[in-house]
Design a binder for these strands. Structure first.
Ligand code: MN
Ligand code: MN
Ligand code: ZN
Ligand code: ZN
Lengths: 145, 145
DNA sequence: TTAACTAATGAAAGTAGATTGCATTAGAGG
DNA sequence: CCTCTAATGCAATCTACTTTCATTAGTTAA
């Protein structure tokens, strides 16, 4: 009769509900897939892993947009103009080490948020965010001569 | 009869020549425009400022690509998937404070290069670079309610 | 349960920035 | 000049993403 700790998908769905969103099969599946991924993924990778007979890419994009709106996921803009998506803990955000060849991304424990905030405010800016990603060639891709 | 300090356009053109490149009117003009800009600019902004009767956008892109190849300019990938270009001193690179509304970008004196390099190497990565850009809304755009 | 409301979805078309293919032009060297 | 080929312009293409709109399916409450 007590409510569970809710570190699960229910927390996220409840957040969407609170914002007036409906809980659909596709939406549940997309959130599940995001939870399964260990690395940031592209919209198309998410669609592929979803495996519901037909999940249109546009549906994935719309759900990702909605999820970002409530702070459940983070969008990672890559050098090449594309983006990856990653589930984030409440109030958190992450930075990554990304392979330029295979686009695999692993989380980096490093943030310049504090330094940046002061500077940006001093320049008269508001609503400050930052992007920081490290690029290189991973061991695997490097050995593939 | 002595060679000038060469902090001018000649240094850059010489670098292109050294790489087997030709010195064309369009190319000179594009470099001039890059030198005139005080802020990072998009390919199309560069084309517009060039003002040669007809400079095709594709020519601007190709020259920017070549200039980046010899380290004369830096490419700044934005959150929205587009990119800006900026002349950089030899061996240097810069980070910026960018307005999400008007896309104006000013240079920030802040770099995490050192911290990043060690981490990335520890993960087995090579050819390491990093992107770091701060976003916000500038005073002008903020007052435009 | 069922009806009504409307958010979510899918199919198709559209967008924007950047890139490619190819015929033509024009640097650079002899 | 003449030759060689890099650079250019134009058009077509690409790709990631967005918009439009008709249809489907959650949600709520009668
Ligand atoms: Mn950070
Ligand atoms: Mn740096
Ligand atoms: Zn790799
Ligand atoms: Zn602004």
């Amino acid at each position: 009769m007590n409510s569970a700790p809710d570190s699960s998908i229910e927390t996220i769905l409840e957040r969407m509900r609170a914002g007036g969103g409906r809980i659909t099969k596709k939406r549940i599946r997309i959130v599940q897939v995001l939870m399964q991924f260990e690395h940031p993924a592209s919209a198309d990778e998410i669609r592929q892993k979803a495996e519901l007979p037909e999940t249109d890419l546009v549906t994935v994009y719309r759900n990702l947009e909605a999820l970002q709106g409530i702070g459940v996921i983070q969008r990672i803009p890559l050098e090449n103009g594309t983006q990856l998506f990653e589930l984030t803990a409440p109030g958190e955000h992450y930075h990554h080490l990304i392979c330029r060849e295979c686009h695999q991304a692993e989380r980096l424990d490093l943030c310049i948020g504090k330094e940046v905030l002061g500077r940006a405010k001093a320049h008269g800016y508001s609503q400050i965010t930052h992007v920081m990603e490290v690029y290189g060639v991973c061991k695997d891709c490097d050995s593939d001569s």
